[in-house]
Every structure is written in structure tokens, then in C-alpha cells.
Design a protein around this nucleic acid. Structure first.
Lengths: 209, 209
DNA sequence: TATAAGTCGTGATTAATTTCACAATTAAGT
DNA sequence: ACTTAATTGTGAAATTAATCACGACTTATA
């Protein structure tokens, strides 16, 4: 894996860059400078140049970056050509938001199935994605490597264990529970309450003026 | 502001610690070690001790931390006594998820009003929170300092401008748009598509085994 | 062609964060 | 009272990330 030298902080910004470059292309722009990109994505322009530089010299001095070239490059780097299938566990409000989001437009990921326990929902589709009963998880999920967890915290541990048993590699965890997984499984936590509290804490203790 | 020396990385973890300490107290635990806490919140135990140490010597060597004492301390530090009022803009699936979440239980924040354009929703309540038409934003929102943005990206800039004009201090932005605000307004971006893409990128390029 | 303005790529520096590792202290058991 | 095991708090080191600042190159203009 030749990209192992890329800092994690950089890797997290790549999808953001990719989306804005896409926007630019749709607007018909053919060139862009790190300064313009900086204004758009709110990342320091030196940081952007440094980020890009990990992939080689993608720009031209005095000119900037060619949008199409850069996009093509990122498409390959971010594996935009391969589609990663994702399962969604928990079709509440948050889960439904994901199903309606239709990531696939700009993305390399697609939710291909969802699970819930509500008999009103099981057997139906949302955004074209079939909803199965969670009891059928083991039978349906084979081959899917990534799951989004949008269930109540109380279910998080048991569902996680079942996902791990079925060989999941990555979990995007929206429950407040900090789930425990084997070493080879990667979990990213997004804790909505914590995010809101952190924002409030920063407002009070780190005044911007 | 005497807490200005606390690293931002630490500040972001405080709400997480707070919630887990609360859990422990409800379970009747009276003491806890940094190692136990580490297992629960998935943060290195040395990092936890360092985080706590910014607030002074809160623990006892050979013993650990007293749950109640620590909780009391964080309650003050995190301003759990004061309630910060929050407005939610956009009552789609994601917005509805927030309204049903009922943060106030463990939290210092409360969503006190919501806005949308859908005539079916305007005038109703979800989770006890009244939903107003977004045209009434200027009339209703006075005094509220924090907003959660769960609207389509296309509306993000115009709504942000209106919020800023009304004196908002902090925005939790769930739209993919990177909004532009004056210096004195703090924005935290949570970009669901980017989070999912970043997870997939890490899975492919940073294997855990 | 000469000049000016713009922009990248990057060495060097600074800043922020995490982790190691251990002396000091406490609790518990015998 | 003594010993053993546990655990903190923190100096120091290591790691990671952000930022500065400038030489080199490109484009545009006169």
C-alpha cells in the first residue's frame, strides 16, 4: 500500500476536496488555486498544498491546479470507481435520513440494505433500499464490509457482536455507546450529543473575539 | 477565562467523559480508574489522566477517581447547570431525529424551537418542541445563540446569513456546504457523506492487521 | 522581449497532541 | 506493621499536524 505515508489528517480531508472539485467542474471551472479552494472548504491554503503534495506535483506554479486533472487523480486515489456496499442498521429518523441521502451520486459508497425490527417497515423500501428484519441479518449481510449503526444505544453491543461475527470491517457508529470490537475492525464514532456539547463548551471557553 | 489553557483535543473529550461518569454513577459505582474509563470510552488511559490533570489533581494514587467527586467537578466545568437554548433549522429526517433525541436529560443544551417550510409541519410540535415557519425566524429566534442546521445545502448560505444577522454565536452545520461566517461566529461541520467516505478510505489504505 | 503578478512545492519551524515510563502514594491483605 | 498490587500525576520523548516563508516557475500584459 503505497499511500501509507499520507497523514491521517490529510486523508480525512480528501473526500471534502473531492466534492468541491466536483462542484467546480459542474460550474465549468477549469482551473483553481489553493487560495480559492481554501476559501471554499475553509482549510488553510498551505495545508491544502501540502495535502496535495503527498500525491506528487499535481499543480503548476503560477497557474494553480487543473480541475479535471485533479479530479481524475482523486477519483483513482479515493477509489471512486469501486463501489463499497454498506448496510444500514436501524431505520429510525436518523437511519431514514441516510436512506434518502443517496450518497451514490458523488460517492464511492452505496447503502444496499437496511435492517429494523418494526413490522411496519420490514418488507418495504426507502429510497429504493430494501428493509429487512434484523433477525435476518446473518442471512442477508454476507459480503457487505461496512455498516452504519443508527440504533438505540442499548442494542449497540449485541448488534455489533453479530456484525463482527459476520466479518464486517468498518462501522460508522452513531449510537452514544462506545462499542468494543476486535483489533481488525475499524470504528468511527459520531456522537451527536457530544458534538453539540463540545460546540457549546467552545463558545463559552474559547471566545473568538 | 481560566480554562483557556486546556487543549482543544481535551475539551472535545470532556462531554464524553461526563456521560460515562454519569452512567457509572447510575450503576452505583463509587470509584473508577483511568484504565476502566479507558476501556469504556476507548481513549488511552494516559490521555485520560493527562486530560483530567489540566483541572488539577482530581484522583488519588493507588485508588483512582471518586465518581461522585469527579462528576460534581465536571458538572461545574462543563456548565451543566446552565442551560443553553438551541434552535433547529430544518425538520427533515435528520432534524426530527434531533427533536426526538431529548438531549436535556444528560445535557446542558435544549432545543427550544424548530423551523421548516413544510405547511404540514409548521404549527405542530415534535418531542414537545414547536415548529415555526422559517419566515418567522427573525421574530422568534431572539436570544438563542446556537443553531443546528439540518436543511438542504442549497439553503445553507441564505439561512446562515439570516442567523448571523440575528446574532447567533455557534452553528452545528450538517449540510455539505462549507458556510461562510464572520470571525466571531463558530461553526462545527459534520458532514455525513465525508465521514462515510473517510471510513472507507481508511479501511482500504490503513489496514488494521 | 521584458516586467509584473500570481502560484506552487517544500525546507524549516512551530505548535499541538499523544505516549512512555516511573516516583510517589494508597489500599488491601496477611 | 509489613508487603504487595494498584494507580495517579507528570517530566520527557515521540509523534503528528499546521504554518511560515521563499525560490522557482507560469501567465499575462505592455
Amino acid at each position: 500500500m503505497d499511500q501509507n505515508k499520507i497523514p491521517q489528517a490529510t486523508a480525512k480531508r480528501l473526500p471534502l476536496y473531492y466534492r468541491f472539485l466536483n462542484n467546480l467542474q459542474h460550474q465549468g471551472k477549469t482551473r483553481v488555486s489553493s487560495k480559492e479552494l481554501s476559501d471554499a472548504v475553509k482549510v488553510d491554503s498551505a495545508t491544502i498544498r501540502r495535502d496535495f503534495s503527498y500525491f506528487g506535483a499535481l499543480g503548476k506554479k503560477g497557474y494553480g491546479y487543473n480541475v479535471e486533472y485533479l479530479l481524475g487523480f482523486f477519483r483513482k486515489t479515493l477509489d471512486q470507481d469501486e463501489l463499497t456496499e454498506v448496510a444500514l442498521i436501524g431505520v429510525g429518523n436518523l437511519g431514514t435520513a441516510f436512506l434518502n441521502y443517496n450518497f451514490v451520486k458523488n460517492n464511492n459508497t452505496k447503502i444496499v440494505m437496511a435492517f429494523d425490527t418494526d413490522p411496519e417497515k420490514v418488507g418495504t423500501e426507502i429510497g429504493g433500499i430494501p428493509i429487512y428484519h434484523i433477525d435476518d441479518l446473518e442471512g442477508k449481510i454476507s459480503g457487505v464490509k461496512v455498516a452504519i449503526l443508527t440504533i438505540p444505544a442499548s442494542e449497540a453491543d449485541s448488534v455489533t457482536d453479530r456484525l463482527v461475527t459476520k466479518g464486517i470491517s468498518g462501522i460508522l457508529n452513531f449510537t452514544p455507546a462506545r462499542i468494543t470490537v476486535p483489533e481488525h475492525v475499524r470504528v468511527h464514532h459520531i456522537d451527536l450529543a457530544v458534538e453539540l456539547q463540545a460546540l457549546v463548551y467552545f463558545l463559552k471557553h474559547y471566545p473568538l473575539d
